[in-house]
Write a protein that binds this DNA or RNA. Structure first.
Length: 881
RNA sequence: GGGUGAUUAGCUCAGCGGUAGAGCAUCUCGUUUACACCGAGGAGGUCGGCAGUUCAAAUCUGUCAUCACCCACCA
């Protein structure tokens, strides 16, 4: 017997799912789910829980539907984040900054990575994520390394890779270049300083506005717009850069915007992207004034050397003010580029880096989506994808950190580069190049952007560059489920690299889910303190409840707002399931393998079979469209409304009658009682098992557990014949019964009758005349009535062509009943009149479809009949009073 | 500056041409041996504004407003 209390902890913990290995079903359709590898930086957050749950639902569903499913897990080394995190740990525990060698730090990170991986994998198992952990991969494992080198070499040889000195976004805290995508704009309160640049001939000055006065030392010109009347006469004049004795020219360039600042702009090519372009156009020199830590260098006046950039700014402004070169200061809101990981303002710096030429790679990636070989769900994300790829810029892939794939490039003594998959191969190339037997080669110090290895994930995980059966079977047969925030970082690059290296798309489907936010719609963040830990939720409510809730809140293209109350809804649903199955078991329901749908006789049994069939179809449709919200809704209503609130109540009298008198046996005139009871038990067990199996992808723990309790160990997708036609009479009868019960309940409550007190009732119906005989037990119990003699004081209710007469107790409030009927008749009249208006409108008759017109006619007739009957009732109530 | 999405019951959201739905909250009643993490019954909305298309608009088209996000730029 099941425990009285539903306690997910008692069984979820003990479950470990045996994941069927892939490739074991050679005749089945292959299907792969590529799990976005979480960073090895600690633990999973609620966003992972959502993402992984959705994938697990898909994977389990596909397995049930007979696919050969490979659900591929992995972990990402997450270069910068992980290194920063481990460094912080080390410093926090006493290590001195800058004392660790590369080898020492890497050793520490590997240790940390092991711990993190274990935590993450356990969390995934707690959530019930059914990936094939025996195939777990890490972006920096041996296979990953091989693949990365191979692709790097291929890109290099194909001319898609180059190394060069260029201006990049530099993170002074990490002391590394980062890519455009890792730049976030932040709006901050800043100042706009108006500086006087004195003419070299002392004949006056020009005022230039800047937000970065510390960069004046890198100024090589002042630019004005050629159209700008104010300054045209000054072009070519020399001015003196403030606080220095350096002379620069006033030049003309379209870049100077007369609308902004004073219309004259200082040009600092070494520290600004736009100025760099201007510098190139005018062949201006580059003056670098900062080192890689963001401190001013020897190219600035001695006073400011070694100052941090912000300290320098304060000091420069102070001195400018003192020397009278500061005209005025304005407060402004400005957008400043920050590093997304380090959260410090970035510096544009000229450094030597490796770049991938993205334009060529983008072309086939764009057409793959244009040609519908790859589709985004929801589709609108394709616009974002196109927009980015159409304007894609070179991808800076080198990082000046230690944790990551070391760039497979070696340099000879003269700086000649040899790109090769290994030192040996680089050596061969070098030997050939120099025509010597021995060449000292030094490997590039830098590592690759983490996303470089992530971009190869679809084929790396399948064993590439080895030729593997998995590669042949699953490549381009997968789905990727992820958040929109990594469409550029990951999705686009996987498509580019996949098409480039494999000559085939990696996956046809990309499902994009929303971000998980708190109940107010805010992003979750540690600083806001609104982070919800999925594992805490699992502990409190059970993993199934968490999974259920996440799935139920997932709508395509919408963010998921979550709070604990929404998880309670999921938990309540599972409790309901637990209880109803406990009840069924208490009444002797266990799964009967011999059960045949066609043998069922009782209308309620036929009805629930139909309802289950309908639910299965609905879930199949919704799964096909990745409508996880609909999937849970169908399950919810099927169980709670149809199964619990109606079906179980219908069959209680049958299940619970322990001993029957002969008279009672006669009443159950459908079947001999023992047979009827068995019939109902079997149907109930069957329905429960079907339900649990459809529930399985969403809530596997409870599904497995209760299915086992019902005597079914194997989960399989229901295969139910279409019963709608065969069972149509029974279905209609039960629907009628439901309406009768609801109506009587409604009236009784309206009249403030005590629900416990039975009211005498007579049912008058053309098609279901004998319903009161056939379903006496059910009606009496569920509607709180008694069939018997009806005295003259009666009221009645009209439903679907039937009239239910109810005997009035003394003291019943007839006036309010009359009010109720009048309101009802008025509502029906309004509806009828609306319908008639339509049906007499020639425009409607001429244009609307036949079925629509028919439906309107039917409704009008329906209303007419109801109105007629209610009017009769009102008349009869007049007689009573 | 360019783009995308949202605006429907108190809240969170479905519905996306044929007379408005769910969950939660709320109100009334109910402790009948599955379940109070429950049952029964109610109340609650001119579907952001305006214009248009249509016999018919929450649903399609324009436009405006508000909010959110993305991209680009700023002296």
């Amino acid at each position: 017997m099941l425990e009285k209390n539903f306690n997910p902890e008692s069984f979820e913990k003990n479950f470990s799912f045996e994941i069927e290995a892939s490739l074991k079903k050679p005749t089945a359709e292959p299907f792969m789910v590529l799990l976005p590898p979480p960073n090895v930086t600690g633990s999973l957050h609620i966003g992972h829980a959502l993402c992984f749950t959705l994938q697990d639902i898909v994977a389990r569903y596909k397995r049930l539907r007979g696919y050969d499913v490979l659900f591929q897990p992995g972990l990402d080394h997450a270069g910068i984040v992980t290194q920063l995190l481990v460094e912080k740990h080390l410093y926090d525990s006493g290590a001195e900054k800058g004392t660790l060698t590369r080898e020492q730090l890497l050793k520490e990170i590997w240790l940390f990575k092991e711990d993190s991986s274990n935590v993450i994998i356990n969390q995934m198992k707690t959530l019930g994520i059914s990936c094939d952990f025996s195939r777990l991969r890490f972006t920096m494992d041996e296979g990953g390394k091989k693949a990365v080198s191979k692709i790097f070499v291929k890109l290099f040889e194909d001319g898609l890779l180059h190394r060069g000195k260029k201006m990049v976004n530099w993170d002074p805290l990490i002391k590394s270049a980062i890519s455009d995508l890792e730049v976030v704009e932040k709006e901050v309160d800043g100042h706009l300083w108006y500086l006087k640049y004195i003419f070299a001939d002392s004949s006056g000055h020009i005022v230039v506005a800047t937000t970065r006065p510390e960069t004046i030392f890198g100024d090589v010109a002042v630019a004005v717009n050629p159209e700008d009347e104010r300054y045209r006469h000054l072009i070519g004049k020399d001015v003196v850069v403030p606080l220095t004795d350096r002379r620069v020219k006033i030049i003309m360039d379209q870049y100077a915007d007369p609308e902004k600042g004073t219309g004259a702009v200082k040009i600092t090519p070494a520290h600004d992207f736009n100025d760099y372009e201007v510098g190139v156009r005018h062949k201006l020199p580059l003056i670098e004034i900062m080192n890689l830590r963001g401190e001013l260098n020897e190219n600035v006046p001695e006073l400011f050397r070694h100052m941090d950039r912000f300290e320098a700014r304060r000091n420069v402004v102070e001195l400018l003010e003192k020397t009278g070169l500061l005209e005025k200061t304005e407060d402004v809101k400005q957008k400043v580029p920050y590093g997304d990981r380090s959260d410090v303002p970035l510096e544009p710096m000229i450094t030597r880096q490796w770049f991938v030429n993205m334009e060529k790679l983008a072309v086939p990636a764009i057409s793959a989506v244009e040609e519908r070989k790859i589709r985004f769900i929801p589709k609108r994300w394709e616009n974002l994808y196109f927009e980015w790829l159409n304007n894609v810029r070179p991808w800076c892939i080198s990082r000046q950190i230690w944790w990551g794939h070391r760039i497979p490039a070696w340099y000879g003594p003269d700086g000649q580069v040899f790109v090769a998959e290994s030192l040996e191969k680089a050596n061969e190339k070098a030997v050939q190049f120099y025509g010597k037997n021995r060449v000292e080669l030094v490997q590039d110090e830098d590592v690759l952007d983490t996303w470089f290895s992530s971009a190869l994930w679809p084929f790396v995980t399948l064993g590439w560059p080895e030729e593997t059966p998995e590669m042949r079977r699953f490549y381009s047969k997968m789905i990727v489920v992820t958040g929109f925030d990594i469409i550029f970082f990951w999705i686009a690059r996987m498509i580019m690299m996949g098409v480039y290296s494999q000559k085939e798309i990696p996956f046809p489907d990309v499902y994009i889910h929303g971000l998980v936010r708190d109940e107010k719609g805010r992003k979750m963040s540690k600083s806001k303190g609104n982070v919800i830990n999925p594992l805490d939720l699992c502990q409190k409510y059970g993993a199934d409840a968490v999974r259920w809730t996440l799935a139920s809140l997932t709508l395509p293209g919408r963010d998921v707002k979550i709070n604990e109350r929404s998880v309670e809804t999921g938990r309540n649903f599972l409790t309901k399931l637990w209880n109803v199955i406990r009840f069924a078991k208490m009444n002797g329901c266990t799964y009967n393998k011999e059960f045949e749908i066609s043998d069922v006789a009782h209308p309620a049994a036929k009805w629930i079979i139909f309802k289950i069939k309908q639910m299965v179809q609905d879930v199949e449709k919704s799964m096909g469209e990745y409508r996880f919200d609909e999937v849970t809704r169908h399950l919810y209503h099927c169980l709670w409304d149809s199964f619990c609130d109606w079906y179980m109540e219908f069959i209680k009298p049958i299940l619970q009658q322990q001993t029957m008198t002969d008279v009672e046996k006669q009443e159950c005139n459908l079947l001999p009682h023992t047979l009827l009871k068995k019939d109902i038990r079997d149907t109930t067990s069957w329905a429960i098992v079907q339900f649990l199996h459809v529930l399985y992808p969403v809530a596997p723990f409870i599904s497995k557990k209760l299915s086992g309790e019902m005597g079914v160990l194997e989960i399989s997708w229901p295969n139910i014949p279409n019963v709608a036609v065969d069972f149509s009479d029974a279905i209609a009868e039960v629907e009628f019964l439901k309406t009768v019960i609801s109506s009587i309940r409604s009236i009784k409550q309206y009249l403030h009758l005590n629900p416990g007190e039975k009211v005498n009732v007579r049912i008058e119906s053309a098609c279901y005349g004998d319903i009161s005989i056939r379903h006496e037990n059910i009606l009496e119990k569920m509607a709180g009535i008694r069939f018997g003699k009806i005295c003259s004081r009666t009221i009645a209710v009209v439903i679907n062509g039937a009239v239910i007469h109810m005997e009035l107790e003394d003291g019943v409030d007839i006036l309010s009943e009359k009010d109720r009927l009048r309101t009802e008749v008025a509502r029906h009249r309004k509806e009828r009149d609306g319908g008639i208006a339509r049906l007499t409108d020639s425009g409607f008759i001429d244009n609307a479809g036949d079925d629509v017109i028919k439906e309107h006619r039917r409704r009008v007739e329906d209303m007419e009949e109801k109105i007629r009957k209610i009017e009769n009732l009102l008349q009869s109530l007049e007689d009573v009073v």
